[in-house]
Design a protein around this nucleic acid. Sequence first.
DNA 1: TCCATTGGTTACCTTGAGGTAATTGATTAC
DNA 2: GTAATCAATTACCTCAAGGTAACCAATGGA
Lengths: 123, 123
Amino acid sequence: MSPKWDVLSRTCPSRTSLARIANKWTAMIVITLADGPQRFGGIREALDGISGKVLTSTLRDLERDGLLRRTAYAEVPPRVEYELTPLGHTLHGPLEALARWAEEHIPEVLEARDEFDGQAVRG
Amino acid sequence: MSPKWDVLSRTCPSRTSLARIANKWTAMIVITLADGPQRFGGIREALDGISGKVLTSTLRDLERDGLLRRTAYAEVPPRVEYELTPLGHTLHGPLEALARWAEEHIPEVLEARDEFDGQAVRG
DNA sequence: TCCATTGGTTACCTTGAGGTAATTGATTAC
DNA sequence: GTAATCAATTACCTCAAGGTAACCAATGGA
């Protein structure tokens, strides 16, 4: 389709972009926001274990790439909502597929690991 | 489907697995091997910029998870081939979709970045 | 009066990812 | 003889990712 871009090429911007979207936190955030806007605290709770600092910077990066929109309300205490942009929504399918792969194939992965580690000990 | 696994849960093994597959090098390697077996040097060349050490350890991790098979031939100089397992092939679709997303949407991403950075200067 | 609230930001530290360079080993070509 | 070959491994180094903890600001409620 577009021979201009190639993620395998070191200097191609799409490779940088791939690095951002092919990423644990990105996937989890996009999946969490797929159903609708969420507040900062809600995302943090959904992601179960991410630190505030990392969540802040990750959200900022995704906002910068146009994947989500940040809306801060002038209230006290602060209220900030994050929602996927249309561009961000187009990413949800592929990332959801990836997450579902991880969930569906985890038994095979765990079994492969056991076998590999067992052979390593014997070898 | 399988309520037993949840990538959003901190302690779920599938979350670790997601971290491995939602990863720049994993995506590029699986895509490279999708067309057939490749030798170590061939993969290294295709990935354009990866160091030997990192490629070795990444391939080892993927082998451990059952995504690819390593075949070493007792020749001199050594010849080692890597190929996707059936399990690895099931991962190709989702990762290819992700790579294609990066290539197809890079103009929008770059534009979003420009706008974001421009506003940051003004703000 | 004082504290909890919320979404940061900052300073500081630890961990790990990833790069470079040297070395291994048997054979072939020079 | 000896240089080149290929896939690793190892030691060593650097840099960035990411965690912790303290702090902030305006308001409402105890």
